[in-house]
Amino acid sequence: MKKQLLATLFMLGCFGITSQTYAVPVLNTITLDDIAPTPGSSATKLPDGVLQLTDNSLSDPEYQIGSAYSTSPVGIETFNATFSFQYSGTYPAHGSADGIVFVIKNPASATSGGDGGGLGYGTITTGNGSYAGIPNSVGIEFDNWYNPEVGDPSSNHIGINVNGSVVSQGTVDISPEFNGSGPWYAWVDYDGSLLSVSVNQTNLKPDSAMLSYNIGNIQSVIDSPAATVGFTGSTGWATQTQQVLSFDYNDPPRAVPEPGTVTLLGIGGALVSIWTRRKRLAISD
């Protein structure tokens, strides 16, 4: 009887663990299909699957805040994220702004921060009031408006932000301007300590990172073993349409072939194709 009771308790315990595991699955790989707009924000999914965070075609496109996140948490021990985005349009006599942020956050944290220079991510005071940023989070900003009050280095840069602050831990200027010169391609890599970012106007990853920051253990930063990942974006006095065109996230990181390796693979594939064709011709003769 005692053995049967222990066996039953063991089975119930296993069932409970299994049920918890499947109730909130932690994914290792997601794409743009797994990113959903936050209800009530300006973000939307277009019919072709593109994620649009802000819309410059509105009658009043000022001070929008868009956000969208993964529908399930993801692993963050080590990872790489690759995505493409583009900005387009301006507000007459105002210009284009403000940019987007790739966000890694505690699943329970707020989904957005302030408009304008807050980029939908950060703590800021604007003409619409004061906003709190996203706590327990890491944000990679792609900023195309100069906000000197938060330490922006220029009107077109990338930066690494922590815990809802738009005062970046590190920045680097980017040329040409994001708006109107897209699509842009971005790579975010994390090796368990170092967070690295690069952008390019082609889908060829630069040989070395353009911006790096030793952030340490991201799980400690966001106070969670897994994260919700996604994007925020905003407009202010100046406006633009902001779109994320593609997205891939992998934990652990997926290897990205070096340019030379890609070339060799291409040559190898061509040689195999020629050899196969010649063999077929020889057989038919």
Results as ranks from 00 to 15, higher is better:
residue 195 L to C: 12
residue 161 N to K: 06
residue 175 S to P: 12
residue 236 G to S: 04
residue 139 G to K: 06
residue 136 N to M: 00
residue 222 I to T: 06
residue 227 A to Q: 06
residue 173 D to L: 05
residue 175 S to Q: 15
residue 241 T to V: 08
residue 155 S to I: 13
residue 153 P to Y: 03
residue 151 G to S: 08
residue 213 Y to F: 15
residue 156 N to V: 05
residue 164 G to D: 06
residue 174 I to C: 12
residue 163 N to T: 09
residue 168 S to I: 00
residue 211 L to R: 13
residue 142 F to R: 07
residue 178 F to K: 00
residue 232 T to P: 12
residue 238 A to G: 02
residue 149 E to D: 14
residue 147 N to K: 09
residue 191 D to W: 15
residue 214 N to I: 06
residue 236 G to K: 00
residue 207 D to L: 11
residue 242 Q to G: 12
residue 160 I to A: 04
residue 199 V to G: 09
residue 167 V to S: 13
residue 156 N to D: 14
residue 173 D to W: 02
residue 187 W to Y: 14
residue 145 W to D: 12
residue 211 L to K: 09
residue 194 L to A: 13
residue 171 T to S: 15
residue 242 Q to D: 13
residue 245 L to I: 11
residue 127 G to W: 03
residue 142 F to V: 05
residue 129 G to K: 10
residue 223 D to N: 15
residue 229 V to S: 03
residue 153 P to H: 05
residue 141 E to M: 15
residue 169 Q to R: 12
residue 230 G to V: 01
residue 201 Q to F: 00
residue 196 S to N: 07
residue 184 W to G: 04
residue 226 A to H: 07
residue 237 W to P: 02
residue 175 S to E: 11
residue 191 D to G: 14
residue 241 T to R: 03
residue 242 Q to T: 09
residue 220 S to K: 12
residue 161 N to R: 10
residue 122 G to R: 02
residue 211 L to A: 07
residue 240 Q to R: 02
residue 181 S to Q: 14
residue 198 S to Q: 03
residue 127 G to P: 07
residue 146 Y to W: 11
residue 131 Y to N: 01
residue 124 I to D: 04
residue 198 S to W: 02
residue 128 N to P: 11
residue 171 T to H: 15
residue 134 I to N: 01
residue 194 L to E: 04
residue 205 K to Y: 03
residue 223 D to T: 13
residue 156 N to L: 02
residue 241 T to L: 07
residue 129 G to H: 13
residue 185 Y to K: 12
residue 185 Y to P: 14
residue 142 F to G: 08
residue 150 V to I: 15
residue 171 T to E: 11
residue 176 P to T: 12
residue 243 Q to F: 02
residue 126 T to Q: 02
residue 201 Q to W: 00
residue 170 G to H: 10
residue 155 S to R: 07
residue 194 L to M: 12
residue 222 I to A: 03
residue 136 N to F: 04
residue 120 G to E: 03
residue 190 Y to V: 02
residue 185 Y to A: 10
residue 126 T to N: 08
residue 194 L to I: 11
residue 215 I to L: 15
residue 164 G to H: 06
residue 227 A to V: 08
residue 163 N to E: 09
residue 176 P to Y: 04
residue 208 S to W: 09
residue 196 S to W: 02
residue 202 T to V: 02
residue 200 N to P: 07
residue 142 F to D: 06
residue 191 D to I: 09
residue 169 Q to S: 15
residue 120 G to R: 03
residue 185 Y to G: 13
residue 189 D to W: 09
residue 181 S to E: 14
residue 139 G to W: 10
residue 205 K to V: 09
residue 121 Y to S: 00
residue 235 T to M: 01
residue 152 D to A: 11
residue 143 D to V: 04
residue 193 S to A: 09
residue 213 Y to M: 07
residue 166 V to N: 15
residue 221 V to D: 04
residue 213 Y to P: 03
residue 156 N to I: 05
residue 204 L to D: 15
residue 196 S to F: 10
residue 245 L to P: 03
